[in-house]
Design a protein around this nucleic acid. Structure first.
Lengths: 332, 332
DNA sequence: ATCACATATTGTAAGGTTAACATGGCGACA
DNA sequence: TGTCGCCATGTTAACCTTACAATATGTGAT
């Protein structure tokens, strides 16, 4: 493989001049530029990207940390990030944190030790305190689907409150007044905000929130099952169920059907996230779209703008959820 | 950040000796080693991994090409590969090929230009000829879920014929004799092999394969719908339907239900792949497990063994599918 | 015409690590 | 005591960018 040195000697200029032609960031006279370009093509020269990284302190790689590589939510997220960065010639190094504090720390350390130019992370286990500290390091870090007030400029987040509101409103609009609610883990801000929106919708329509019809789930299938089980065991009256994500909605549906409910006639269920399989389950799940693919795109743009100096990009930090009407809510 | 040069001068040895201690691949006297180690810890020295890559021509990164980042099949595959490589301190650079010839070429070029030490790819668009040529390059390439006779040692593949056989047999064992079949695209070897297995099961049980009950699908939801639609339009008699993957099974189920079929009483359906949502759809889908997570693990091991010289690993090139019994097949 | 100065263009060298090759020292054996 | 051979260690080239240095070219004043 030809090196920059051979090019420079063939063109009769110094290394630096060749480098300047390659990166074209400083003025080079047209005559010199032409000589260098001819030498490059004659030798079939291609820069060694590792040497470029070493000399420039830039690896053109962005580290991604997600909780899991499988699962529809993260798939969409990665796809959004990757397509945007790939188009800019950057590559993504992906690793996982499994929603656990220690493994998230470890994953971030791993990515930093790999000299990523920036990190885009989806954290669920680490404390805000740790995160704020981390962001003082030399590797810029951006946060997906999360808002940390001190680092708002580095966050891309969903208006979860609005999502919670829309879900409740969808049920209310179809005549439901007795609405059960299975939330995500309380310590997660997403869970909290969705619930706040839910309560706002209720109170706007003069409906009371019933603590008996609240269950704290785990954002997994099991949470949906456990929540519905509790409500049924207590023999509470309700016609609709809000689940704070689609996995729990799916779990609740399975449980409901196993206990003789016809869906959606006997029980209306709404989910949250609009993950791909929500349209495959039966009845097709009405849910709240979480535009995670677009958010991935935007996170990538944020990196391109702040880290790779692509100036004319407009950044949207906050995204809006939207109601996706399908078949899992009955008109009362 | 301390450099190897500072370490060497503090320890009173040459750069090379420090490097030897770091990589401990050549004999260094105990006395010298101790001096160097003390100097390293005193300075808090950490090697610059870019410089290591540059000097050693090794990036410790493995390029992965999948068709899509989202989607359950590829999620499992990536998860398998990543977890194994990460444990070995290697990182994965992931990109997509979208099952199209040009984009697969482009993706591979991209990964090679990034100096990956090896590639693990899942190709659907490229011809075997092109692939064989590619494998003559200096970057070793390994193939997931594919078998190329000339490169068998670089392939990790599923026994699709057996899978097709098991699916048909599952239906036959429950008394079905009129079985429709929706295959994947004919040009894909996976599709062909699954169909061959299917036919073997039929003939072993003295059942004829009915060309009228065959439809070439696209491995997507739409293929399942279109296939079932054709069979119904032709008013053919059949009690069971084999779909060559789960997505098509899901599409067929939706279509069947929309046309008044009770499942599985009126129609038994079996899928292939056992993707995650197959247990969420209703009725829970009976399918053939495609151990793609394990295959990802194995591909990673293959790379560790061949490229990173981890010798004591046993490699399995061929994987066996297995029947997963759920609720979508009725006993006749 | 000459000089000083500004500006445009090009050159030099450092920076981090590995690996091939080179050197030096020491013991063994004749 | 000479020499062969081996073990431990040293030297150097390899990659490209960028801050700084140096040189060339042009401009305006005297």
């Amino acid at each position: 493989m030809a090196t920059i040195y051979e090019v420079s000697s063939l063109a009769g200029v110094s290394l630096a001049t060749v480098s300047r032609v390659i990166n074209n960031n400083t003025r080079v006279s047209d005559k010199t530029r032409k000589k260098v370009e001819e030498a490059m093509s004659e030798l079939g020269y291609r820069p060694n990207s590792i040497a470029q990284s070493l000399a420039s302190n830039r690896t053109n790689s962005v580290g991604i940390l997600v909780s899991e590589l499988h699962g529809p939510f993260f798939g969409q997220m990665m796809a959004g990030i990757e397509s945007e960065l790939r188009a800019a010639g950057k590559h993504v190094i992906i690793t996982t944190g499994h929603s656990e504090e220690d493994r998230e720390k470890e994953g971030i350390d791993f990515l930093i030790s790999r000299n990523c130019d920036a990190l885009i992370v989806h954290l669920e286990g680490l404390t805000d305190e740790y995160i704020i500290n981390l962001s003082k390091g030399s590797t810029p870090i951006y946060f997906m689907s999360k808002i940390i007030p001190e680092l708002e400029e580095n966050c891309i987040y969903l208006d979860n409150e609005l999502g919670g509101y829309l879900a409740a409103k969808a049920l209310i609009d179809k005549g439901h007044t007795q609405i059960a609610y299975i939330s995500g883990p309380k310590f997660k801000p997403d869970s909290k905000d969705r619930l706040i929106g839910h309560k706002r919708a209720l109170s706007e329509h003069n409906l009371a929130f019933n603590d008996e019809l609240y269950f704290e789930g785990d954002f997994k299938e099991t949470g949906g099952k456990a929540g519905l089980k509790q409500f049924l065991t207590k023999k509470l009256a309700f016609t609709a169920l809000v689940c704070a994500n689609d996995e729990m909605a799916s779990g609740a549906m399975t449980y409901a059907r196993e206990h003789g409910f016809a869906l959606p006639q006997d029980l209306s269920i709404i989910g949250f996230d609009n993950i791909i399989f929500s349209r495959h389950i039966y009845p097709k799940l009405t849910t709240i779209d979480n535009p995670v693919y677009d958010m991935g795109h935007m996170a990538a743009k944020l990196v391109l703008k702040n880290v790779y100096q692509q100036k004319n990009l407009t950044i949207n930090h906050s995204f809006e959820p939207a109601l996706i009407n399908r078949d899992s809510i009955a008109q009362l």
